[in-house]
């Protein structure tokens, strides 16, 4: 039995079963406003890319749901159901010590992703699941492969904005950056880039 649990602008997320396992099915939905050829091309490309990025993230030692199946005809990915808590919902109720530990872990994970040239593209606490003291990263739909400092900066800048919009403790991002610096040798350049991005008008008004 498939049960729709979320409908985004681009995809539908179902809770389902696959060979006796509880799984999540992410289906990229048809957009009738696009001509068929273009619609097929985009949905197929993105499904492929997301599966690839999740697989490379896993290889980099980052916790992501295990991919069980990719169906390019139906533009869907079948993945492990991570039974945990959405970080966005629980971060604020943790003690400061726990928050610090979580942010250190986030910083280390993002540094490792970036070292492998993986840009998540939408790092927010809504896209992190906390289970057994591990942080699972989900939704690589806007991600890409890149070694550019610019892309890494934009990636982290988004998290900074997400923290500002959704969480109270103002120190969260600085902890992430501290840990990021311990695991990445590009951290100085990336931090400089984040400051530069902040100064760009078009990012000043980012809301969430």
């Amino acid at each position: 039995m498939e049960k729709l649990i979320k409908r985004g602008a681009e995809a539908e997320i179902y809770l389902s079963e696959w060979r006796g396992r509880k799984v999540i099915v992410k289906k990229r939905i048809k957009k009738r406003y696009r001509i068929k050829e273009l619609d097929e091309e985009i949905r197929e490309k993105r499904t492929k890319k997301e599966a690839l990025l999740m697989a490379s993230a896993r290889q980099a030692g980052i916790s992501v749901p295990i991919i069980y199946d990719v169906n390019l005809d139906e533009k869907k990915i079948v993945m492990e159901y991570v039974n945990g808590e959405r970080l966005k919902d629980v971060l604020d109720v943790k003690s400061e010590e726990e928050q610090k530990e979580i942010c250190y872990k986030i910083g280390e994970d993002i540094a490792n992703l970036h070292l492998q040239g993986i840009i998540h593209g939408d790092i927010t606490t809504s896209n992190m699941i906390l289970r057994d003291n591990r942080i699972y990263f989900i939704d690589f739909g806007l991600g890409m492969k890149s070694e550019e400092i610019e892309d890494k900066g934009v990636d982290l800048h988004l998290l900074m904005e997400a923290f500002k919009a959704a969480h109270r403790n103002e120190k969260l991002f600085s902890w992430v950056i501290e840990a990021y610096g311990n695991f990445s040798d590009e951290s100085k350049e990336v931090e400089k880039k984040i400051k530069e991005i902040e100064r760009r008008g078009r990012y000043m008004r980012r809301v969430s």
């Binding site: 602008a9 681009e10 957009k31 406003y33 696009r34 001509i35 273009l38």
Partner: peptide, 18 residues
């Protein structure tokens, strides 16, 4: 036209969902 306009529709839809 198809490519540019589909892109515009997509970002507008995202903003609406958001």
């Amino acid at each position: 036209q198809e490519t540019c306009f589909s892109m515009l529709a997509e970002v507008t839809e995202r903003a609406m969902a958001h």
